[in-house]
Design a protein around this nucleic acid. Structure first.
Lengths: 252, 252
DNA sequence: CGATTTCTTGATAGGGATCAAGGTCTGTGG
DNA sequence: CCACAGACCTTGATCCCTATCAAGAAATCG
């Protein structure tokens, strides 16, 4: 479905999500596109951001998937977010994120690198665009909040169901998922670490969801068999991901 | 410690945190102060934001505490954030938050109300200030991420310890907590709903922490008895709250 | 001062972790 | 083309952390 893997084509992932939130002028779109012109590819399993390091750039994901995670001193790992095309990595990098979280590529990734000085230049030349970008970033809080509800008050079955539906909706919003299916290299270990579960238990939960004809996870692909049933079961309410449009803020 | 409860004095909570992140010009500080000049008080237990409603304003908390929470269809509640002075409520209100989360006052609160049109005006007149504000809001993601680690990979004991330390640090950053103690009307039910635990278990955990001479929660006050011991036990790393300063982004 | 609300404590149960051991698949090198 | 290693999945047995259920104290409030 997506265009060729050239930078300009993929650029849309970030720009289109931003445009869903607030209208972008033609010039702003051009600036955005130009910002993403310097790219770099990241090998599978490599870190984009390593805990404790400093970086001189932020990164916009153009292609591929990654995870943002934290390792506790005793080795426990918590994945706080799945990084998808259109996501921004490293904004907090030089102030806080650097010392706590790492971001690693799950697949080979293509990222646009934007040096801080360029962002700062934007602050002078296109402050309104920058306001829009940061506003968008602040909206991502909603994804974290929903994830918190998952971990705090949902059973393992509901968690997994909700998690898989959220990924579906997020990928759809950037045109990377079909109606009920998407490709992503999720292992059971990744699901476990994202949802605070153990690997064997994730295995059992997935089997259960499969047997109930709700979702199937196999071959790096998630296929939702019964969207309504699964959504109801997971108490899934996609508005926090898709209903960004329509806000009056910054609409001018 | 804080000044008189006049709007100008309390204004500092938000402004000072923003200033910790990026330098503010004198004019920007003035605009910020003026933005917070229209205030409203909220009675204890009342909602500032009710799920599903729309609002024409955003709110900056000047005094008092609240919670941001979500009720699932079957009544389970998850508190996603404790709202403290200097926090902003309702930014996402009209697009998404409105349909999912409520914010309720724990104590009587004083909030500044800023109508959307005023924010939009800022977009024209002070876009750089707006960029700074939204940048700050996006930094709050770090608090959510840390909360996710709590719920996903920490034991009940560690969670409670970490939670109480985070509140200490956050209140200190706005000058509302002493070295090792702060006042906040936390019930065990609130702690339970914030940390995904049951009330009886919170009770036992608190007793344990008290017996171990680590923290005491009583009379709407939290007193840390052994800051180092507790921090180590909870694996608490306050940099995600306080090390905002020093970023080169927007520093100009 | 009666009535919620909040806190405590105990008994029981269950969801999910942990431990353990195969099985399966994939890529690699001989 | 086969052998092998390493990653990943599967399943079973057992245990334990924490939820639930229950029922009183204690504190707070109108």
């Amino acid at each position: 479905m997506g265009g060729a893997p050239s930078a300009t084509a993929v650029t849309t992932a970030f720009a289109r999500r931003l445009a869903q939130l607030v209208p972008l002028s033609g010039e702003e779109a051009a600036v955005l596109g130009e910002l993403q012109s310097v790219t770099r590819s990241v090998q599978r399993h490599r870190d984009i951001i390593t805990e404790g390091r400093h970086y001189g750039s932020i990164f916009i994901v153009l292609e591929g998937n990654g995870i943002r995670y934290r390792i506790l001193h005793d080795g426990r790992r918590q994945i706080v977010n799945i990084v998808l095309p259109g996501d921004v990595v490293g904004v907090l990098g030089h102030v806080i994120e650097s010392s706590l979280y790492s971001t690693k590529a799950l697949t080979e990734m293509l990222v646009a690198t934007i040096p801080f000085p360029r962002v700062n230049a934007l602050y002078e030349t296109h402050p309104r665009l920058l306001a829009k970008i940061f506003w968008w970033l602040s909206c991502e809080t909603a994804i974290y909040a929903e994830h918190l509800v998952d971990l705090g008050r949902r059973t393992a079955l509901e968690r997994v169901a909700h998690f898989l539906l959220e990924l579906l909706a997020r990928l759809q919003s950037v045109g990377l998922a079909a109606d009920q299916s998407y490709k992503i290299p999720l292992t059971q270990e990744l699901i476990a670490d994202a949802l605070g579960l153990s690997i064997p238990h994730v295995n059992r939960v997935l089997r259960r969801l499969r047997e109930d004809q709700l979702v199937v996870v196999e071959d790096q692909r998630v296929t939702v068999k019964d969207l309504d049933g699964l959504s109801e079961f997971a108490d899934f309410e996609p508005s926090y991901l898709t209903r960004f449009a329509g806000g009056e803020l910054l609409a001018g």
